[in-house]
Amino acid sequence: MKTLYKKPESLNDIVTHYCPGCGHGIVHRLIAEVIDELNIREKTIGVAPVGCAVLAYNYFNFDVTEAAHGRAPAVATGIKRALPDNFVFSYQGDGDLAAIGTGEIIHAANRSENISVVFVNNTVYGMTGGQMAPTTLVGQKTLTSPGGRSSCTAGNPVKVCELLAPLEGVKYLYRGAVSSPSKINTVKKAIKQSFEIQLAGGGFSLVEILAQCPTYWGMTPCESVKHIETELVKTFPLGEIKKWKKE
């Protein structure tokens, strides 16, 4: 009998701490599936962030470390420079990558460190209780923008892919979402593309994933996926932001 569906070997068989309807679990699974398919589990080193996904290290069945808030690209740089034959990726949220870790991500990208970055953008700080993130939509209510984010006082959402795209060192950028089965399949392809670029020695790539946070959006899981497709995509358009050109 042919097995059509099973838990990836790269994922531990335990219950996660994520809230019902959270997008992180889907992203974890996609990463694990891709690592299994590429048969690189034994040479993979993951760098977990500070934020909701800090506990990602409990869920992955390969070597993982945890970086200080925002510093994952610098830690990944240190690992990859020491072990260039290993596969190294960082997993970062929007507060981690686009606020406190802005310096680290821009310079790792600009140096074209041969690493992959999985960037989960759910427009809010989850771990600390729902504060405004750099990617929070204008008008979005959070714990620290109770009247809705004002672009006058808090600026506009940071578009990470568009910010990184002009850097020559950045070889591939894709923005997807985990709001529907078809979009999930597309994101998986993008993750695979990013990982393959690294395996080919191609340089820096990043996949941004719009993910639902029902808890801090004050929505049901179903409303949350709809919110991604009707609202988030207006600010964060989906698709290939920078195409990989094999050099």
């Binding site: 470390t65 970086a67 200080a68 510093r71 610098a74 830690v75 990944a76 740089t77 240190g78 690992i79 990859k80 420079r81 020491a82 072990l83 310096g103 680290e104 310079h107």
Partner: peptide, 13 residues
């Protein structure tokens, strides 16, 4: 900040 975190990454290995 990046320097010490790169040291962290290298030391990990």
């Amino acid at each position: 900040i990046a320097s010490i975190n790169m040291v962290f990454g290298a030391a990990l290995t």
